[in-house]
């Protein structure tokens, strides 16, 4: 399930697809994403949309995600 939805970009991150590689966190200039504290059902660290309001919808995180875990509508 998507963590949060932004009014501006509609960024969604699928926590269960996420493996916590952090490539999206690294590429995001606006610090929209950040690592979550816990683990997902697979026991893996994951990333959450922490500041959806800051998302410009540039899609760089989507491009870098190896797991098709981020959607921007």
């Amino acid at each position: 399930m998507p963590e949060k939805t932004s009014h501006r970009s509609g960024i969604k991150l699928d926590k269960e697809r996420c493996k916590g590689c952090m490539l999206c966190v690294e590429v995001c200039q606006r610090k929209v994403l950040e690592p979550a504290k816990g683990v997902n059902k697979k026991g893996m660290g994951y990333v959450v949309v922490a500041a959806a309001g800051k998302c410009s919808g540039c899609g760089l995180c989507v491009m870098m995600c190896p797991d098709c875990g981020i959607e921007i509508s």
Binding site: K19, C21, M22, L23, M63
Partner: peptide, 10 residues
Amino acid sequence: HYCPGCGHGI
């Protein structure tokens, strides 16, 4: 099944 950060997924 790829490891975190593996390029195959991209």
